[in-house]
Amino acid sequence: MSGLDETLLDDTEATVRVRFVVNGRKVACEVAPRETLVDCLRNELELTGTHAGCEMGACGACLVQLDGRAVHSCLMYAVQADGARIDTIEGLTESGVIADLQAEFHRRNALQCGFCTPGMLVNAHELLSQVAEPNREEIRDALSGNYCRCTGYEAIVDAIDAVAKARCEGGGAT
């Protein structure tokens, strides 16, 4: 049984090498076990589109996709993600999969300061991949873990609603 190496306990600040596939590229970095995934993405990998807000899973600004599912990158340590596929707002932007959502957010002023927007988009992307045409209540429910301190949410719900309808009709958002 290859168990715990107790020398590990002597230096809790010692860094560990972790490997992920971030936005389609293989990367490796050295992290302290207590470094959260959001800090690793921002500080080590310089992917600053993922925002660290409350750092306790309440505000949703730090959402990324981990193996295809939206998760709070402040609620896990980078070491836990070793071997995982991570897609951040940069990767989702580059691939074009949320281009219609981004355009609609822009068109409807569904952002002001923009701090919450990456998390909103990751969440909206997951919602629309699971429910083709959610009603407004379902959209609000899905967004219940994402805080926006500027817009009052109405335009955000409008934008997601419009994109859902447009996708169902097979065209772009109007």
């Binding site: 290859s2 168990g3 715990l4 107790e6 809790t12």
Partner: peptide, 23 residues
């Protein structure tokens, strides 16, 4: 708002996890 430093061990089996905790 940052955790105190800790070490991390990824257990492959229940026995490994229990053994690490016991130690």
């Amino acid at each position: 708002m940052k955790a105190r430093a800790f070490s991390y061990f990824r257990a492959a089996t229940i026995e490994q996890a229990l053994d690490a905790h016991a130690r």
